[in-house]
């Protein structure tokens, strides 16, 4: 792909992610500090990248991948007998990109954390 096209595509994906985050937060301001986002620095296989999030005091955590065709990855809603506001899963990443976690806190505020993951083999087939 031509370099300029590639950067345009990346811009498009980035704004998709911003839109998706805004849809989740309703445009509220994003704090940081309370989130621990665990992601590998380098993922050899983009089909299965282990991701963990831990946000004490969160009611809801959403994961986004800003370089995927569809940025939304998963939303965790914690119920009344959840012991810790943490979860881990495995996700697909199409290419090297940022994984973004946005958490809704008990007081209604939002927190965000980002982690860059280098992907050796993308997770979108091919």
């Amino acid at each position: 792909m031509h370099l300029r096209q590639a950067s345009q595509v990346r811009l498009l994906f980035a704004s998709l992610t911003d839109d998706a985050i805004a849809a989740f937060t309703g445009g509220a301001e994003l704090g940081s500090g309370a989130i621990t986002l665990t992601a590998p620095e380098i993922a050899e296989n983009g089909n299965t990248v282990p991701i963990g999030v831990d946000v004490p005091g969160a009611t809801q955590i959403t994961l986004f991948a800003d370089g995927n065709p569809v940025p939304n990855v998963a939303t965790f809603n914690f119920g009344p007998i959840s012991a810790s506001r943490s979860a881990s899963t495995r996700i697909r990443l199409a290419a090297t990109q940022n994984v973004v976690a946005v958490a809704k806190m008990e007081d209604g505020s939002f927190q965000m954390a980002k982690a860059k993951v280098k992907v050796t083999i993308g997770g979108c087939g091919g």
Binding site: N72, A74, S82, S88
Partner: peptide, 22 residues
Amino acid sequence: QNVIDVTLEPAISTNPFFAFEA
């Protein structure tokens, strides 16, 4: 009583894995 309720998008890996505490 609900422990966790997860919305999965196609970006979740095949054979999904979740870890959480109750």
